[in-house]
Amino acid sequence: MFKEQIKPAILSFLILTIITGVLYPLVVTGIAKVFFPKQANGSLIYRNQKPIGSSLIGQPFDNPKYFWGRPSATSPVAFNASASSGSNLGPLNSALAETITNRIKLYKAADPNNTAPVPVDLVTSSASGLDPHISLAAAFYQISRVARHRNLSQDTVKKIVLQHTKGRLMAIIGEPVVNVLEVNLELDEYKK
């Protein structure tokens, strides 16, 4: 009863391994290469043939002339895209309160005239530590600071923010978000 099953077990395991573990990923890779080469390779952004980032992976910013993204809990450096990680801080952990207090201080110090409360996504770590996006509220909160440091009008900065905003899918699903790296690249390239 048991012995007769050994041969089918080993052989079917081998064949299914080849089908699902070799052929299947190779077929997907092949089709992806032909139809979606950019997406399959990481949605990289190029300037002068050099990759300068990915539109899907956030980068760290703390210069006041740039928009700042979601806080990142990766180590040893923020936005370490070879070791994704969240903070895993529990809601009552005093370390969470402390971290958030410090982040609020940074925003207040960089923009003392802005008295609005800081939008929640600017002071809470993202799940991946690589979140490329912030909410519209988080972007609008930073417009006055960025505009001042770049000697641009707030309207100009807002226009650039909106250009890199993605709305909901069919106006319903997901959340509208601003791509931080794309906005910052555009700001650097903007000619008055």
Binding site: R70, G86, S87, N88, L89, P91, L96, V120, D121, T124, S125, S126, A127, S128, D131, H133, I134, S135, A138, K166, G174, E175, V177
Partner: peptide, 10 residues
Amino acid sequence: NMEGKEARFG
């Protein structure tokens, strides 16, 4: 509560 959540998912 956005701690540990991605902006695009909310």
